[in-house]
Amino acid sequence: MHTTKMIPLAAAIALSLSASAHAQEQVVKIAHVGPITGPIAHIGKDNENGARMAIEELNKQGLTLDGKKTRFVLMAEDDASDPKQATAVAQKLVDAKVAGVIGHVNSGTSIPASKIYYDAGIPQISPSTTSAKYTQQGFNTTFRVVANDSQLGGALGRYAAKTLHAKTAAVIDDRTAYGQGLAEEFTKAAKAAGMTIVATQYTNDKATDFNAILTSFKAKKPDVVFFGGLDAGAGPMLRQMKQLGIQAKFMGGDAICTSDLPKLAGDGISNDQVICAEAGGVEESARKGLDAYKTAYKIKYGKDVVIYAPYTYDALMTMADAMQKAKSADPKKYLPELAKIQHKGVTGMIAFDAKGDIKDGTITLYTYRGAQRSQLAVTK
């Protein structure tokens, strides 16, 4: 008799303990936004996978914030690389009271969405947005963990002068915000390093005939032709440079640094002629940590990292680190910690400047050999 009465009592105590533990648990919603449909869905999904790995890692750690056991939940949304869809998703996340946002993937979606997050006081860290404008809006909620286009153009200018020992360059841009910004930063850095800009010309992002511009360049005999534009323009430009007998090195940013460039350029591209740059990459000292992450990613998802998954993982872990330092997931409380964070990530040290740009962002330089992209260097 005595023992049968004790069993329900023990069960009742266990139940009440579990209920009180459950009452102590808080759920923190962090969003990831990227294109999960459309032409760059593979990049959006790669980023989302990186965010998911971070959430799982945090939940394994069993963190407490403000004395309460905390469970992190990922709200994954698709913006389809479309600015209108991006702002609709941003509003949905604000209404859902997320604690923070990781994303978006593209500059064209991150920039309009950033205003909505800023108005709601919700921190946003993009793992892959490179337009300088993203962090020039004066929003204290806006951060990124990769180098921006200004840093990219500057690194290419310094490389041209110091590593290629180029003395002269001819510069052309496609008049897009991206192309123009990149060309301006290249010009600034190249001049500062002692180079002379012998010609500056403009085209548009639909053009494929550059003969008139290139003929005017040929007379100046530049060591480097720099193009601020896309691979769709760079391919024909390289073919026409070859036809005109222009021997210069050809340089540009991440939008020409694609696997499609050799196809678009055909026989116009020769080994080591093209030097292009992408945001991201790790210096030798951080390679071990990144390789371990990539191995874990492949085991989990059965495929290789596309590009930015490690940066997405780091962005989310950096946000969570700021929450731990503030002992709170309340954006008002952890935002000041995020602004002064020093987080050791798998892609290197993450710390932000006053605008929200990553300090000392790395850039990877590539060339092409036998139609294959080949890494040259990681620089800052």
Rank of each mutant, 00 (worst) to 15 (best):
M1L: 05
P8W: 15
L15R: 02
S16I: 14
L17W: 13
A19T: 12
S20N: 15
V33T: 13
T37Y: 08
P39E: 12
A41V: 11
H42D: 10
I43K: 12
G44V: 10
N49G: 08
E57V: 05
N59Y: 11
G62Y: 04
R71G: 13
R71S: 07
F72M: 03
V73H: 12
L74F: 14
M75G: 07
A76Q: 13
A80I: 05
S81C: 08
D82F: 14
A88D: 14
V94L: 14
D95G: 09
A99N: 05
A99D: 02
G100K: 07
V101L: 13
V105S: 03
V105H: 12
S114V: 03
Y118S: 15
G121H: 09
Q124W: 03
S128W: 00
T130P: 11
S131R: 14
T135W: 06
G138P: 12
F139K: 03
A147R: 04
Q151F: 10
G153M: 02
G157Y: 01
G157C: 03
Y159W: 08
Y159D: 03
K162W: 05
A166M: 11
K167T: 10
T168Y: 02
Y178S: 00
Y178C: 11
K191V: 03
G194E: 03
G194S: 07
V198N: 01
N204T: 03
K206M: 08
I213P: 06
V225K: 00
V225I: 14
F227L: 15
G228H: 00
L238M: 12
Q240R: 14
M241C: 07
I246W: 01
Q247M: 04
F250N: 00
A255L: 14
S259P: 02
A265Q: 01
D267C: 07
I275T: 02
I275L: 03
G280A: 05
E283G: 15
E283K: 04
K298Y: 13
G302V: 10
G302H: 02
G302Y: 08
K303Y: 07
V306M: 04
V306K: 02
Y311W: 14
T312E: 07
A320T: 10
A322S: 13
M323P: 00
S328N: 06
L335F: 02
P336R: 04
A339M: 12
K344F: 14
G348N: 07
I350D: 00
I350K: 00
A354N: 14
A354S: 15
G356T: 06
T362E: 05
I363A: 04
T364C: 10
T364P: 02
L365F: 10
T367E: 03
R369G: 08
G370A: 15
S374G: 04
A377L: 15
K380M: 11
